[in-house]
Design a protein around this nucleic acid. Sequence first.
DNA 1: ACAGCAATCTGGACTTTGTCTAATATCCGG
DNA 2: CCGGATATTAGACAAAGTCCAGATTGCTGT
Lengths: 136, 136
Amino acid sequence: MHYTRDNMAGLLRSHDINPTHQRIEIAHALFSRQEHLSADQVMAIVNTRHSETSKATVYNTLKLFLEKGLVREVIVDPSKVFFDPNTSPHHHIYEVDTGKLSDIDAEHVQISGLPPLPTGMVTEGIDLIVRVRRAS
Amino acid sequence: MHYTRDNMAGLLRSHDINPTHQRIEIAHALFSRQEHLSADQVMAIVNTRHSETSKATVYNTLKLFLEKGLVREVIVDPSKVFFDPNTSPHHHIYEVDTGKLSDIDAEHVQISGLPPLPTGMVTEGIDLIVRVRRAS
DNA sequence: ACAGCAATCTGGACTTTGTCTAATATCCGG
DNA sequence: CCGGATATTAGACAAAGTCCAGATTGCTGT
């Protein structure tokens, strides 16, 4: 299945998002690349094409996608948030010197021995980040 | 053992840090509380006392402490970095609605099944963050 | 077609966190 | 007490993100 703009409209609708021109472009930027992009990068990509999309819209749209479960937020760099079109359970490897971020499939990763949560709390998600750097 | 300012001087020296007045105050803020503090919070605490410490010094000092292994950085909130005086291996629970951050001792937590690292890479650290919220 | 209305988009001002710089202050050895 | 290295400072700056009031878009019913 390819990530055409038409398919993006369907994807948005299936997540209860009104598929506007700008939203389709932003979704396309994320899904056609299958990469982790910052808001900045999304804006740059979307604005190399014909139509201009404002900063406010990029941020609003990414937040909307997040709420609707279309993308995931990855917080590894203190200076910017990355948005991840892969919402299946997985973890991340972060190369601290280059900023490169890649996925680890959660399928074979086992985390055991976590203490019980405080009462009345539910888990929203577990983020596992392996920070690596080039051996010196 | 109490976290007096005198003991802070020793702690700093043992980490190869010249114990100046400002550095002692900042270390004291972190270690006497044993809490996760942001740069902002550190500055607020340090400046309620007699002496004023500039923003630049607070940031410089926290970065220095980080390099010297005196504190650890915790990246869970896109808008600010927390500094953790606990450098022993441990993980974190983050309450997404309140911003409260607490420790999970790593002793009994087992993480298995991680894939091999790309060649030439070494692990700098593994961050495990359990994001929780009040059940609704 | 088109008036009315809700949803969306926009530029730009604003906030916050953090960095940088050049000048000043402090400390220490001789 | 001089001189150099180390530390601190105020304030300008940068980057990410938020907010708002006004303009656009795209339905809906007639």
